[in-house]
Design a protein around this nucleic acid. Structure first.
Lengths: 151, 151
DNA sequence: TATTACGTTTACGTTAACGTCAAGAAAAGA
DNA sequence: TCTTTTCTTGACGTTAACGTAAACGTAATA
């Protein structure tokens, strides 16, 4: 515990580091996601707060709502909960995992399609004049994407 | 073109098939994402409309807004556009791709964490009585997750 | 001392993506 | 023909995640 665990951060420091606004940080506190201590009236964020924030933002990126994120962060509540509650959480976790896996497949598909689009645009950009040959290539691309639409 | 390309769908058929509401479908039309033909006043969706809808929903799943999805679906407009506009779209595609790749990494991390959580809960569920040994395991888990919080 | 920077709370505004009536037309089955 | 179902077009309501503005306190700096 001799590391930088005792370092503290102001609201604007954290805001800049994570490219969010101070308003968002205050909002997260209102929602119970963060609980920074106070020096007088001013918020003081610890290293733990910063770590929680990192998890919050990652949760957001993968599509969790702030409410869901808060619930997941409160793993302590699971630790001391009833077996029924435990089973409920297990189900929710599994559901989440499946949704995430589906999302990953969708993302892979989307990336592929976007890269196809990029390649096509680059090829088109390489030529300066829109020749007839290009127009036929364009038509080919359209046919391709149309083909992909079916099925 | 002898396939089922001529099959048509009612609004509720499509709604049920994709587990969305008729309201959503009308909304997508308002937004210019779908353009079903009409039989009198009633909407008639073609196979192409259905295919576009599939793409819309996939776009949604990976985090695109409806506006973005509509722009991407209108690839025709790119086909006949200026080189500057082409470059703009190229940039936007690349930005999207990077965002998607980051999102993929986040999802992988999230899945891992959730699966760790599942494993822990299952292990805990296996025992009926919360023994002392379990409590120590719980503490170990907490320490572990705390450790992961740092850095 | 005056200004600038940074912080606070309170509260109303905004956008996206629909939900939810209301009120009526049209088609399908009994 | 009567009834039920499915469809239509408004139009207002809702939720999440902040944005934005007001009005003020405090602290460092010129």
């Amino acid at each position: 515990m001799l590391n930088n665990a005792s370092k503290t951060y102001s609201i604007s420091e954290l805001a800049e580091e994570f490219s969010i606004t101070a308003r968002a940080l205050r909002f997260y506190e209102d929602k119970g996601l963060l609980t920074p201590s106070r020096h007088g009236q001013t918020r003081v964020f610890s290293a733990a707060d910063r770590a929680r924030l990192r998890l919050v933002l990652r949760g957001k990126r993968v599509g969790f709502s702030l409410d869901e994120i808060r619930e997941m962060l409160d793993l302590e509540s699971i630790t001391s909960d009833s077996p029924q509650h435990l089973g409920l959480w297990l189900k929710r976790f599994r559901t989440r995992i499946n949704a995430l896996k589906q999302q990953r497949r969708d993302i892979d598909d989307a990336i592929e399609e976007l890269e196809t689009g990029c390649a096509w645009m680059e090829a088109r950009q390489a030529d300066l004049e829109p020749s007839e040959e290009l127009k036929s290539r364009a038509r080919a691309f359209e046919a391709l994407s149309r083909a992909r639409l079916e099925h």
